[in-house]
């Protein structure tokens, strides 16, 4: 019964054939490619050294864990800032290669290019972290979370400062700003671990109790910075 009067209604609300539909829909063509495919495609354009670097960190963690190398964790914490700076540089490559105008004028546009690259690079770091944290934590008998936090914090700090710097006047002129920032963070960790043991112990104490909160806070800041960068990326002119 219900269906029957629905059919009748359908018939009663008859509208004549729309004549310009096909043409109009073609003029607002839909994409042939989904956003997911687009991210996937961008992954193919990430330079090989980014992948090699990620694999090397994992290899080193496994090697350190296997041989019982005591400073494994410190060394990785010192390397992580460079991962961050490579990510920032890689995501911003369009700018240094003069591709921004071309990419902005495409359907997906520069914004989505940068967003896609950041997503991929973030995911790579996440995978690395997920692999090495348990390895180190088991080998050196330390909480997996504390390990992850110790590795992650230098990365996030570098990321935040680099993104901020990239948008500043200095960052616009020097392409290797993130690398310098990574070096500073890295040296600081080296200095703390080698000479200021008291400070290091205090740092570890703080991490023990507040580590997760600090990491989450920094993570939130990183996302905020990324967001600002994305919105800024097309407003260079």
């Amino acid at each position: 019964m219900k269906n029957e009067w629905k059919d009748m209604l359908n018939d009663a609300f008859y509208a004549p054939e729309a004549v310009k539909k096909k043409e109009f829909l073609r003029s607002i063509r839909q994409r042939e490619m989904s956003s997911f495919e687009m991210i996937w495609q961008q992954a193919a354009y990430i330079r090989i050294h980014v992948w090699i670097f990620a694999v090397m960190i994992i290899a080193f963690a496994v090697f350190g864990a296997a041989t019982g190398l005591g400073s494994t964790q410190h060394i990785i914490a010192m390397i992580m800032p460079f991962t961050a700076s490579f990510s920032v540089i890689e995501a911003q490559r369009s700018k240094w290669c003069g591709m921004t105008e071309l990419e902005m004028a495409t359907r997906f546009s520069l914004r989505s290019v940068v967003l896609a690259r950041m997503t991929i690079l973030g995911a790579v770091t996440f995978v690395v972290l997920c692999v090495i944290s348990p390895v180190i934590s088991v080998a050196f008998d330390q909480g997996a979370v504390l390990t992850a936090v110790r590795i992650l914090i230098p990365y996030l700090v570098t990321m935040i400062i680099s993104l901020e710097a990239e948008r500043s006047v200095i960052g616009r002129k020097t392409g290797y700003c993130p690398l310098m920032i990574a070096a500073v963070v890295s040296v600081f960790i080296y200095w703390m671990a080698g000479f200021e043991t008291r400070m290091l112990l205090r740092y570890l104490d703080i991490l023990e109790s507040w580590g997760i909160l600090i990491a989450l806070g920094l993570l939130a800041l990183t996302f905020a910075e990324q967001w600002k960068t994305i919105n800024n990326v097309e407003a260079f002119a």
Binding site: R31, G98, L102, E103
Partner: peptide
């Protein structure tokens, strides 16, 4: 554009394919 750059590792074919990808072409 009046002036444009390219990723240094690109060949002519790769360059055009790259832009095609960003234009959402299958």
């Amino acid at each position: 554009p009046q002036d444009f750059g390219y990723y240094p590792e690109f060949s002519a074919r790769e360059f055009v394919l790259y832009i095609a990808a960003l234009k959402g072409i299958e």
